[in-house]
């Protein structure tokens, strides 16, 4: 609790008191996120290009798609890093989930408090065989999410979580 920490950790979650075995998300998560972003930016570019083309002629199209491409490049860089920032670690009694690039967040969910474990996969996620694990406790509005796991990994995690949750029921 020393206030005068000469060079305190700037990435606190990597400085957990004990060593953690952080598990990354599946590589396809990056693809899914990039694809979704690409589609959205393409739509934006199309919408943007109509007034610009009417106003400036063909040069407007160039501007619109140029801006969109620049924006997409920036977003890709962020997405790649954001996906890398996701991670989960199973400890003896709890599950740690970290995520976020700008706003970092670390959730610690004890197995004994887990009320519900959901697996879900959207259509695009299914194409790339990805599954999202959602974990709920009795705390309101706190859904802990692990997006983008291989289905086998997700199911294994779900089974382990439910088994541990049944073992150590801690209640409200």
């Amino acid at each position: 609790m020393s206030r005068r920490d000469p060079r305190g950790p700037s990435l606190p979650f990597d400085h957990w008191p004990t060593d953690l075995d952080w598990q990354p998300m599946a590589g396809e998560l990056r693809t899914v996120r990039l694809l979704g972003m690409g589609v959205r930016i393409l739509l934006l570019a199309v919408v943007l290009s109509v007034p610009l083309a009417l106003w400036l002629g063909p040069v407007g199209l160039l501007y619109a798609f140029g801006a969109a491409a620049a924006f997409a490049a920036l977003r890709s860089w962020i997405i790649v890093r954001a996906v890398r920032a996701w991670g989960f670690a199973e400890r003896e009694k709890d599950l740690l989930v970290k995520h976020g690039l700008l706003f970092r967040e670390l959730s610690i969910v004890p197995y004994g408090r887990i009320q519900l474990v959901d697996l879900k996969a959207g259509p695009i996620e299914r194409v790339f065989s990805l599954t999202t694990v959602q974990i709920r406790t009795a705390a309101l509005g706190a859904v802990t999410e692990i997006p983008g796991l291989d289905p086998q990994v997700a199911e294994g995690l779900r089974d382990r979580l439910s088994a541990r949750a049944a073992e150590v029921r801690e209640g409200l």
């Binding site: 950790p9 700008l102 706003f103 610690i108 409200l172």
Partner: peptide
């Protein structure tokens, strides 16, 4: 029930 630690960009700059 569960514990969370969060850190925004300004907070990170200030540790």
């Amino acid at each position: 029930q569960q514990v969370e630690v969060t850190q925004g960009p300004l907070q990170r700059a200030q540790r």
